[in-house]
């Protein structure tokens, strides 16, 4: 019986190693293609490791395709969007968790209902509004709609429930204003929640494609996902450059998963399982 168990677990391990290889293959192929000359992309037999590494694919993106700007733009939208959304979600989550006020149930119901309006169904008018406000081709146009997140409010509300009322009352006895209570007492308690939710927001924003591709136009205003797609042109698409851009776009995310995997997994399961 024991021996049977052992062989079984080895077989499962081997199968998993094979699956892991399958899951990693697209990334390996991406890296390999990013270092090829354009003529080698579809070469037969396939070239696994190019004879010469064409690092100039990467430098070309920076010198000719404004990738320096593109990376700064992506970081700016992702960081600003994340910090802003965390701030607004935690404020609202705190209010819904720890205050009794007139209209609370109604307002919370509205937050719930807001989940049901997908961004895609108000895309057309939003584009018109943006045109009138001059937000087309503007990074703030990418950031602003991302600052509201009903999911974020739920998440923060859940977390704020664990803040002890005595703590808040004691601060009020000392004459502490509610703003100070948020910044001095609640926000520090929320740090783990900021980390989990913040990483999820950051990743989403970094990879965001549909809306940025609708409103961003100039080459030096693009975020990375849109910039990669803008390399695609008619018949002579430089797939090697697209792969180099893709490698650049996934490197920060790989860093994120290796550093913050605990927070990411905790964030995903807490947000959905406990509801």
């Amino acid at each position: 019986m024991r021996k049977q168990h052992k062989t079984l677990s080895i077989v499962v391990l081997l199968v998993f190693l094979l699956l892991a290889a399958v899951f990693m293959f697209p990334f390996i192929w991406m890296l390999s293609s990013s270092l090829k000359d354009k003529s080698e992309i579809f070469a037969n037999p396939p070239i696994w490791i190019p004879d010469t590494f064409h690092w100039e694919n990467f430098t070309q993106l920076f010198t000719e395709r404004h990738f320096g700007n593109v990376i700064v733009n992506s970081l700016f939208t992702a960081v600003t969007g994340t910090v802003g959304a965390l701030f607004f979600c935690s404020l609202a989550g705190f209010a819904f968790a720890k205050y009794n006020f007139r209209g609370k149930r109604l307002l919370f119901g509205l937050v719930l209902a807001s989940l049901m309006i997908p961004m895609e169904s108000s895309m057309v008018p939003l584009f018109i509004i943006y045109r009138d406000l001059g937000l087309i081709d503007h990074l703030w146009g990418v950031i602003l709609p991302r600052l509201t997140s009903a999911f974020g409010i739920f998440y923060m509300r859940q977390y704020c429930m664990s803040v002890e009322n005595e703590l808040l009352e004691a601060a009020r006895m000392d004459g502490c204003s509610e703003n100070r209570i948020y910044f001095r007492i609640v926000a520090p308690i929320l740090i783990p929640a900021f980390a989990s939710l913040g990483i999820i927001f950051f990743v989403e924003e970094w990879n965001n494609f549909l809306w940025p591709s609708v409103i961003l136009r100039s080459e030096d205003k693009l975020t990375i996902a849109v910039a990669i797609r803008s390399l695609q042109s008619g018949v002579r698409t430089p797939y090697n450059l697209i792969m180099s851009g893709s490698v650049i776009s996934i490197l920060p995310m790989l860093a994120v998963i290796f550093i913050f995997q605990k927070q990411i997994f905790a964030g995903l399961t807490e947000g959905t399982v406990k509801g």
């Binding site: 892991a20 990693m24 990334f27 695609q232 792969m243 893709s246 776009s249 995997q261 997994f265």
Partner: peptide, 15 residues
């Protein structure tokens, strides 16, 4: 197994 989910859809679709 989780890495494909946090990497850019655009990048993965192109590969």
């Amino acid at each position: 197994f989780f890495i494909p989910n946090i990497t850019s859809v655009v990048a993965i679709s192109f590969v």
